[in-house]
Design a protein around this nucleic acid. Structure first.
Length: 414
RNA sequence: GCAGAGGUAGUGAAGCGGUCAAACACAACAGACUGUAAAUCUGUCGGCAUUCGCCUUCGAAGGUUCGAAUCCUUCCCUCUGCACCA
């Protein structure tokens, strides 16, 4: 498969400045893509962008990966409202986090990492206005969707800082063109306008033709919403923000109709492999083989093979056919690394334990769960007369306490 | 700065002196059903005590009243006009 064929097959392509996809196949370019540093971890949404980049790398393109140390100080305008400015320290910290994560995902590949703060910090305001600002038409800027929305009736207004964000990004492209010969910028579909800022700027100031390709936003087909959030919120790549276990669960829980799309986007598996997986999945959707393959691949990419294996074992223990009574002490040790473990006194009230374990937010709620029979001890429901936990409930020193379908904790009696 | 409108539980939105822990919708949570799915049905959805009940909430602080989310005062914030600026 050529690059353009693969991009289309995987469903990445959104918009591009190339007239035809074949132009992408003709010349191996040096390209860049920016990563936002407004949060201290990249999320599943950014992971799609990384997979997009990996596709280009596999086809011989050279990547320059940029962290937005300067642009995140300003913030890309949203459609709704002005962003809260973050401190320089926070952004510096986030930029560093982004760098580490990117280096982890791209380990073993050839790539350059840059931080746009390095060349933006010293720029003089007058130089910037003359060299960059002069090349942007106010009329065009004002017509941009988000800016028009923010400035129009019912809009929340927009500061000059956010208004001029796109010039900064355009300037980045120009700098990278000058310094590394970058002639292609990749971005999310929401970045199309900002990518074009650079394309136009370079045409005007350097007389050169450079390009931009954007990637489709990943959509959860069944909800129609942007992909990458669970009920508990964003799925992060950082394991302290989203544990590998939760991360793995997130993928396992993918909807049937989305699984094939996700396999194409979030794994590097080739077409015949993916075809085989989806065929198997269609035969018996209940085995969830496609979800398992997806979860395995993505978790391995983000958290490494060892963690993935551990998480898979823990998952088997929690959701597989095995009863808890059949688990070994070692299995429990594994579970203990993935689930919250809390200590409780012998004969402690179950309602209190639910609260301390975070399975209920208050004692009143805990009581509700109990009367709703939403609580399970070692996988089974129990009579309402039982209100405390004691040594008779332990298995290898632990009690598995679950609320609802997916929220589980281990209890250790003191 | 001036004038108008408004700030109610996760969101939207009723309520405009007592029967308001606050209608309704959505979201969320749980149970049944399931494939750790979707849909559907049922229940829950401030806290403590699960007996009556008690406590904390309706932007904030005061006040009026037997009694306030509801009335008054001050303050904070948001929106819409106008003005300023161009």
């Amino acid at each position: 498969m050529t690059l353009s064929e693969e991009l289309i097959w995987r469903g990445f392509l959104n918009q591009m400045t190339f007239a035809t996809g074949e132009e992408l196949d003709r010349e191996k370019r040096t390209f860049y893509m920016g990563f936002d540093a407004s949060a201290d971890s990249q999320a599943v949404g950014n992971l799609a962008a990384m997979m997009f980049i990996l596709t280009f790398i596999r086809h011989g393109y050279d990547p320059v990966l940029l962290t937005g140390g300067s642009t995140s100080l300003i913030g890309d305008p949203k459609d709704t409202a002005e962003r809260q400015l973050q401190t320089e320290e926070t952004i510096a910290h986030n930029t560093e986090c982004a760098r580490k994560q990117i280096e982890k995902i791209f380990a073993g590949r050839k790539f350059k990492m840059v931080n746009n703060l390095d060349w933006t910090r010293e720029v003089k305001i007058l130089d910037f206005l003359r060299d960059v600002g002069k090349n942007f038409s106010m009329t065009n800027l004002v017509q941009r969707d988000f800016i028009a929305q923010r400035m129009g009736e019912g809009g929340s207004g927009i500061s000059f800082a956010e208004f001029s964000y796109t010039l900064l990004q355009g300037y980045d492209y120009q700098y990278l063109y000058d310094t590394y010969g970058v002639t292609l910028q990749l971005g999310g579909s929401d970045q199309w306008g900002n990518c074009l800022s650079g394309v136009d700027l370079i045409r005007k100031t350097r007389g050169a033709e450079v390009h931009a390709v954007t990637l489709n936003l990943v959509i959860n087909k069944s909800t129609g919403r942007k992909f990458g959030k669970s009920e508990e919120g964003t799925i992060w790549l950082n394991e302290t923000k989203t544990s590998p276990f939760k991360f793995y669960q997130f993928w396992i829980n993918s909807d049937d109709e989305d699984v094939e799309d996700y396999l194409k986007i979030y794994t590097e598996l080739e077409k015949d492999v993916i075809d085989k997986i989806t065929a198997g999945h269609c035969e018996s959707p209940s085995s969830r083989s496609a979800q398992k393959a997806l979860a395995h691949e993505v978790t391995t990419l983000v958290h490494g093979p060892a963690r993935t294996k551990a998480v898979e074992r823990a998952t088997d223990a929690l959701f597989g056919g095995l009863g808890y009574a059949q688990l070994t002490a070692d299995d429990f040790k594994e579970l203990a690394t993935e689930l919250p473990v809390i200590e409780a006194a012998n004969n402690a009230e179950i309602a209190d334990i639910l609260v301390t374990a975070g399975l209920a937010s208050s004692k009143t709620e805990a009581r509700r769960f109990l009367t709703d029979s939403a609580v399970y001890i070692n996988g089974s429901q129990f009579s309402s007369e039982k209100t405390t936990l004691d040594a008779a409930d332990t298995l290898h020193g632990y009690i598995v306490l679950r609320r609802g379908k997916n929220v589980t904790a281990l209890v250790k009696l003191a």
